[in-house]
Design a protein around this nucleic acid. Structure first.
Length: 278
DNA sequence: ACCCAGGTGGCTT
DNA sequence: AAGCCACATGGG
């Protein structure tokens, strides 16, 4: 156990960063305090004004600083996005503390395969479930044994019947195949469109999930995932026909350029967070 | 009982 | 290329 304080500044908000849908292994403890898991690391993080107070169970300062992407200047990104599209101002004001986390590729790969046609609370349960069966124990935290996200080799030993028993549903076969494919191909490299195509070639991964994995697993910021929420936003904001996904994709590329993924996160969080709250 | 959730594969027009 | 539908599961 190690206490760490990370300087954050104004373009960071823990709640927004975790609850914008880019990651799933966290538990809210109280307002602005969360228990967070990443790979085989865990920490308790509390968001103070200008710094993040971390009780790390097994990750050093550098790991968490990198995980939360605290050395990147997001005010420049925001200015650039606003120059290209002033209508983003409400969303950026609302979720301006979002950062794109530095997550492990394999963890993102599997997590977003699970995400398809699924809701966020259940996605979290599914991921906890496979972690507790295929991940290695990392110690007792908040009264329970906790587990690392499964390694590729550990998950490759699973079969889809086992995963079905864990309630992973029809995505079970996708997960097993993905673990095998990843063992051979490893983390994609090269130009971003080539990496995207490689991700898309996984069985069970289509354009939406591939874009999420590009954005959250490889930090390709131009990736613009269009899910059911973003679709509605594009219909609402820009008058697209809800079936015209390729039109939306093209529009986003032109309007938001190399920062499409960040724009998408601001919009997704702004729209979904207010819709879902009762 | 129905519809939806950070969709995709497969089959038919 | 575009339009259906099934797919597991759980919550509203």
């Amino acid at each position: 156990m190690k206490n760490i304080e990370l300087k954050t500044g104004k373009d960071f908000n823990l709640k927004q960063t975790l609850e914008c849908g880019q990651c799933f292994r966290w538990e809210k403890i109280e307002e602005s305090e969360y228990l967070i898991f990443a790979e085989d690391k865990a920490c308790l993080a509390k968001d103070e004004k200008d710094y993040l107070k971390i009780q790390s169970f097994n990750g050093d300062e550098e790991f968490w600083n990198n995980y939360f992407d605290l050395s990147t200047d997001y005010s420049k990104y925001k200015e650039e996005l606003l120059r290209g599209e002033p209508r983003l101002s409400d969303a950026i004001l609302y979720g301006g503390g979002i950062r794109i986390l530095n997550q492990d590729f394999f963890e993102v790969l599997i997590s977003f395969i699970i995400s398809q046609n699924n809701n966020i609370p259940r996605i979290k349960k599914c991921i906890e479930s496979i972690s507790s069966v295929y991940g290695k124990p990392i110690g007792i935290i908040k009264g329970r044994e906790r587990f690392a996200f499964p390694s590729p080799d550990a998950l490759a030993l699973a079969d889809s019947e086992e995963l079905m028993k864990l309630k992973l549903g029809y995505r079970s076969a996708y997960i097993v195949k993905a673990a095998h494919k990843f063992q051979i191909e490893k983390v994609p490299s090269g130009k971003s469109d080539e990496k995207y195509k490689q991700i898309l070639s996984y069985y069970g991964i289509g354009p939406k999930v591939a874009n999420c994995i590009s954005l959250f697993g490889l930090r390709d910021f131009e990736a613009f995932p269009i899910d059911t929420w973003v679709k509605r936003i594009m219909v609402h904001m820009y008058g697209f026909d809800e079936k015209d996904i390729s039109g939306m994709q093209k529009f986003a590329a032109e309007k938001f350029g190399s920062l499409g993924g960040l724009a998408q996160q601001y919009l997704f969080y702004y729209y979904r967070d207010r819709k879902i709250k009762k």
